[in-house]
């Protein structure tokens, strides 16, 4: 178990204890919600984990780095950024996926672009966003988000 995992579990336990001593009923309710969300997320967790296994086991690193590695240039970054914008998976699961891409030859820039567009832009939820906030604001938000995601990714690649 690494330090991060220990810290996260520590924070969760302490927060829960504080909540429990403040309001037992509410604390119990939050545990119930936690259990439910965990069960709901679990099939997707297993799916992503299998995909990661297949990705690292079958796709040779030089193939991955050809498309989204250091030498792939801005084209690779735009490609994976667009992929991130189209995909609809929980952000929590994008991090192990991103880590596996990084391990198999993707560049920091590409991985940062993928996570940032995945979390910020929702093509699947765009109709809902348009309905609630209007066409102009929704399109502006998603469009400019894509541009800044690419800028963030390029800076990440330069400094890391």
């Amino acid at each position: 178990m690494n330090t991060t995992a220990i810290a996260i579990n520590g924070i969760a336990i302490v927060s829960f204890l504080i909540a429990f001593f403040n309001d037992k009923e509410k604390a119990k309710k939050s545990l119930k919600i936690a259990g439910k969300s965990f069960v709901r997320m679990f099939p997707m967790v297993l799916t992503i984990i299998l995909i990661i296994g297949l990705l690292l086991g079958f796709v040779p690193p030089h193939q991955i780095s050809k498309f989204i590695g250091e030498q792939s240039g801005i084209g690779g970054v735009l490609l994976i950024g667009a992929l991130g914008a189209l995909m609809h998976i929980p952000a929590l699961l994008s991090f192990p996926l991103a880590a596996s891409l990084l391990e198999s030859g993707a560049s920091v820039t590409a991985v940062a672009a993928f996570i940032t567009t995945l979390t910020m832009i929702g093509m699947v939820t765009l109709p809902l966003e348009i309905k609630e906030l209007g066409k102009k604001m929704a399109l502006l938000r998603n469009g400019i988000s894509f541009v800044i995601a690419i800028i963030i990714a390029l800076i990440m690649g330069a400094i890391l």
Binding site: M1, T4, A5, I8, N9, I11, A12, I13, S15, F16, A19, A27, K29, S30, L31, K32, I33, A34, G35, S37, F38, M41, V45, L92
Partner: peptide, 12 residues
Amino acid sequence: LILPAVMVLLGL
């Protein structure tokens, strides 16, 4: 190792 803890925080 981390998902249950993250879920507890989300629930809280």
